[in-house]
Design a protein around this nucleic acid. Structure first.
Lengths: 204, 204
DNA sequence: GTCTATACCTTGATAGAC
DNA sequence: GTCTATCAAGGTATAGAC
């Protein structure tokens, strides 16, 4: 079965500018070893700059983390909103949004790990901004469930709790996925979209 | 509906010895800020010791992380095995194991965060040992699914993938749960046990 | 915008008295 | 077993030449 409303995330622009190369280097280092275990020297070396070169483009290591997490959250939110808008029914909307979200957590598992695991290390102001985007991501799925319940398609007791459980499954993909894994991101997306539908579908 | 085979995790022994107090302090600090962002001074201060006091009881910060993660993984494994053994059927076994597991991830969310998010920062040898225990945890659920499929109770395409998705939901509880949250760990355990059964049950 | 050099601080861990 | 004092290493970030 094909899922025509599912979109592949656009390829990440390859780093031409120093600023792009720094962000790409930081994603690899942060996702691999965590924000605090990564040194600015590691990032600079991977981007082909001297240790001081980082500070021309980002005022601090935390600002670099913020730039990355902001990119990642906005990309995820836009993909979800687009998938939800295009879907002809709540069932299709749930299948395609969760599928897209899970696929992204596999295909871009390094970006996703920074998004999911490192954003708590942001400073207060930056973290608050990101938390606002996260609420919007939550709302995309929550709204689909609300609509599906109203139309009698879904059987859901507690919408916020179920939203959380569905997103949990998809988010956790970035924890176990890596480039060694045989299952394709597309196949993972298909499976998780299906699991989400199964989790909320009204019984015959 | 009551779930008689679900057990409450035993209360954590309150820290009488300095070694216990150090482990408790480290759980709080590691879960809150991560392994690398936590200093041995933070841990020592919380345990009521001088910075040097740590090294009488643990040869290094990494050894302290290992002691904590080992405790946590063994506790989780034992709870799961006990729940699985006591259950009268695969359906009940799945409900009670996943429920127990999710409940633990709420009730002991700080221990669980160290177990789930900090264990990758262990040294090679220690990490390998922990990975062995994690495989056993996986196997408890995987074996239940296999049995349930053989008995025609479950409808599961890919047992490893479904095991992963079910455990993902429960593991992720420790990411969002905290002491502010109104839902009780028991109620979360009930819900997640039910969700797991719903995910794999054969359709009428 | 990139470099070399370095200031200044914090870190994990140790020495040695009690 | 706990302390005070301290070391050596490595951290973020800055200064100033080019």
């Amino acid at each position: 079965m094909s899922l025509p409303t599912r979109r592949r995330p656009p390829p990440r622009p390859s780093g031409s500018t120093a600023s792009e190369r720094l962000k790409e280097a930081a994603i690899i280092e942060f996702s691999d070893r965590g924000f605090h275990a990564t040194t600015t020297r590691d990032i600079a070396a991977r981007a082909g700059l001297s240790p001081a070169g980082v500070y021309v483009h980002f005022p601090s290591k935390e600002d670099l983390l913020y730039a990355i997490t902001l990119d990642g959250h906005l990309a995820a939110l836009e993909m979800l909103q687009e998938a939800a808008t295009d879907a002809p029914s709540p069932v299709e909307a749930l299948r395609t949004t969760v599928g897209t979200f899970a696929q992204w957590h596999a295909e871009r598992f390094q970006d996703a790990r920074v998004v999911q695991y490192e954003f708590p290390h942001l400073g207060h102001e930056h973290r608050e901004h990101i938390l606002g985007i996260r609420k919007q991501i939550n709302a995309v799925v929550s709204d689909i469930l609300t609509l599906g319940v109203a139309e009698g398609l879904f059987d859901v007791d507690d919408i916020p709790a179920t939203t959380l459980a569905i997103l949990s499954m998809a988010v956790d993909v970035c924890r176990w996925y890596d480039s060694e894994i045989k299952r394709s991101p597309e196949s993972i997306g298909n499976d998780y979209g299906e699991l989400a539908v199964r989790l909320v579908s009204a019984r015959g």
